[in-house]
Design a protein around this nucleic acid. Structure first.
Length: 577
RNA sequence: UGCCGGAUAGUGUAACGGUAGCACAACAGACUCUGAAUCUGUUUGUCUAGGUUCAAAUCCUAGUCCGGCAACCA
């Protein structure tokens, strides 16, 4: 089911969902099938929190020889749009999962759901209620006190049936009536106090248009969708835990009707199986990450206030944002596996995500040289210079081959790689000192040129070939100045300055990192200009970069910094301050 | 304050009555033509109090703290 088969770095742990599934399999539940589903509501873009759910839903099915359905949970036409339906599919596919033929919409089942609702009314399990929404809170009561019954609770089934049909026909205004389950107004679980099953909505649905005037509520629709599709394990996040008794109530009633031999009911199940006993809901904790926000509302706020460039801004935790930032699907999958699955409400450090990313990128990213803040170097012994030098494309992967890099007497090095008055343990270029220049021998600084203000303008060096026996502690990167390509580079950093922008006194937006994006021009070796959109590189000693998928042009790539290399020296220097 | 969950190093997670382990982070060192990668080592933990048991992170009781639930949202 995964479209690439790189194995996870961490061996899979026997988390509680795996244990449940294996126990069910051992017990022969549902005839030994495992069917799961990923049921997003198409009202926003998917983010890394969804990636966790996707990996679990598809992963559990895949691991146990089952299947996973992709299902748009489109039961609220007021909030859902086609745009999202498309992006969701793209993102799930990008993550590496394939639902095969099993792409569904909750709205596919509106007819069956409606028919089932009528059966419920006939059996005295549901009734049409006319209590206005605002008044209902008095009937419902509060958690500590039982509610009281709706005056319409015991109206004859025939009357409810008639009203329900007229609701469907569009005879009533929104809010005038609703269909309620008849369960228990005294239940300590609020969700069991005669919950709404259907409401009237005169809205155009992205999929069913204006066919329907009544739409099912999530708590009613979801268990039905699962059952109709033959889902065995309905995995969801922890906030639905208190809904489970209602989920089970719907399933029990559905199975009772099916088992009673209702001929129409048999047609509701689009994936029936002789041993299908019904779905079971299990809940796990959502993923939360430091230095970002995850709620749809807050993400939307950032996008709408133009605090980021769009849903796919590379600083956002959206899947399209991460993709544009240069994240790989396998890094994300490994991350989700490493984080594990529990019911504990956790906050995971982004450092772990970044570790998984670097681990993957280190294996696959081609190495190139590029200088971000250039300092000119002039070689004084120009007569002996090679025209080109050879370099490995990826020392971690000899199969990536080698390339020729032009060399000349005018080089650019990183200005941080030269210091006139170096601190102790500085292994780079200093007046009178030597360094190795990557793939191209050595430089010994013989002279420093300064401007009138005393700032270093350029350094003059003596060059020694690779074969020279020279003991140096450092190696720096460089580019040949006359051959250098100037490429736009965006240096992205974390979007927020605090680990938990959410749970603070002030609004989360006050913690936006003003330096989360810095646009600079880098000087790169010629091979960099040939980068294809989406292609990933390590600019040696700097960071991993990806050629932006939208802004790059043939021969003129634009780069996004995906994640920096670890830099112990910079960290130690920072610690001194 | 009613109901439902949860609590193991800084973070995340394992151990399912029998030596508290792993990953990340942090720190130290080795190695290195990337101060990267790799390798080695170090620091740090079972929410509290009782109980059961030869033996408790695990079972029981009481408490503490955290999260969720009172849309005709999902």
């Amino acid at each position: 089911m995964t479209t690439d088969n790189r194995t996870p770095a961490t061996p899979a742990s026997k988390h509680f969902v795996r244990q449940i599934i294996e126990a069910d399999l051992a017990a022969g539940r549902n005839g030994g099938q495992v069917v799961t589903r990923f049921p997003p509501e198409p009202n926003g873009y998917l983010h890394i929190g969804h990636a966790k759910a996707i990996c679990i839903d598809f992963g559990m099915a895949q691991e146990h020889g089952g299947r996973c359905h992709l299902r748009m949970d489109d039961t609220n036409p007021a909030k859902e749009e086609m745009e999202y339906i498309n992006s969701i599919q793209e993102d799930v596919r990008w993550l590496g999962f394939d639902w095969g033929q099993h792409f569904y919409h909750a709205s596919d089942y509106f007819g069956s759901m409606y028919a089932f609702a009528e059966r419920l009314i006939e059996r005295g399990k549901a009734y049409v209620c006319a209590v206005p929404q605002d008044d209902w809170k008095d009937y419902r009561g509060v958690p500590t006190r039982p509610g009281q019954e709706s005056p319409w609770r015991n109206r004859p089934a025939a009357e409810s049936l008639d009203l329900f049909r007229r609701m469907k026909a569009g005879e009533f205004k929104e809010g005038a009536l609703c269909l309620r389950a008849k369960i228990d107004m005294a239940s300590p679980n609020i969700h069991l106090r005669d919950p709404v099953l259907y409401r009237i909505l005169h809205a155009e649905h992205p999929h069913t248009g204006t066919t329907w005037c009544v739409y099912p509520m999530y708590d009613f629709a979801h268990p039905l969708e699962d059952a109709f599709e033959g889902v065995t394990h309905s995995l969801c996040s922890i906030e639905f835990e208190v809904h489970r008794p209602l989920y089970d109530w719907v399933i029990e009633n559905l199975m009772a009707i099916r088992d009673a031999g209702d001929a129409a009911a048999a047609t509701w199940f689009v994936h029936d199986h002789p041993k299908y006993q019904g779905p079971q809901q299990n809940e796990f904790a959502r993923l939360d990450l430091t230095y970002t926000v995850m709620s749809k509302r807050k993400l939307l706020e950032l996008v709408e206030n133009r605090l980021v460039s769009g849903w796919d801004d590379p600083r956002l935790p959206t899947l399209c944002g991460l993709r544009r930032r240069g994240y790989t699907p396998s890094a994300i999958r490994n991350f989700v596996e490493t984080v594990g699955v529990t019911k504990f409400n956790s906050l995971t450090e982004v450092a772990l995500l970044e570790h998984c990313l670097r681990e993957d990128l280190n294996k696959l990213a081609l190495r190139r040289m590029a200088v971000l803040k250039p300092l000119k170097v002039t070689i004084e012994n120009a007569e002996a210079l090679p025209a080109t030098v050879e370099a490995q494309n990826n020392p971690e992967d000899p199969a990536a081959g080698t390339r020729q890099i032009p060399f000349s007497r005018e080089l650019l090095i990183e200005s941080d790689d030269f210091m006139e008055v170096p601190p102790p343990k500085y292994f780079r270029l200093t007046p009178g000192g030597s360094v190795r220049i990557r793939n191209a021998g050595f430089l010994t600084c013989t002279r420093v040129e300064k401007d009138a203000a005393g700032a270093v303008q350029s350094v003059i060096c003596h060059w020694s070939p690779q074969t020279t026996a020279m003991k140096v502690k450092g190696t720096i990167h460089w580019v040949s100045a006359p051959h250098a390509k100037q490429v736009p580079v965006r240096l992205y950093d974390r979007l927020f300055t605090v680990p938990e922008p959410d749970g603070q006194e002030q609004d989360f937006k006050t913690f936006l990192n003003p330096h989360s994006l810095e646009a600079v021009t880098a000087f790169a070796e010629p091979a960099v200009a040939e980068a294809q959109p989406g292609e990933k590189f390590q600019f040696e000693r700097v960071a991993y970069f990806v050629a932006d998928a939208y802004d790059s042009r043939p021969g003129a790539p634009v780069f996004n910094r995906t994640v920096t290399l670890k830099d112990l020296w910079a960290k130690a220097e920072q610690a001194k301050k």
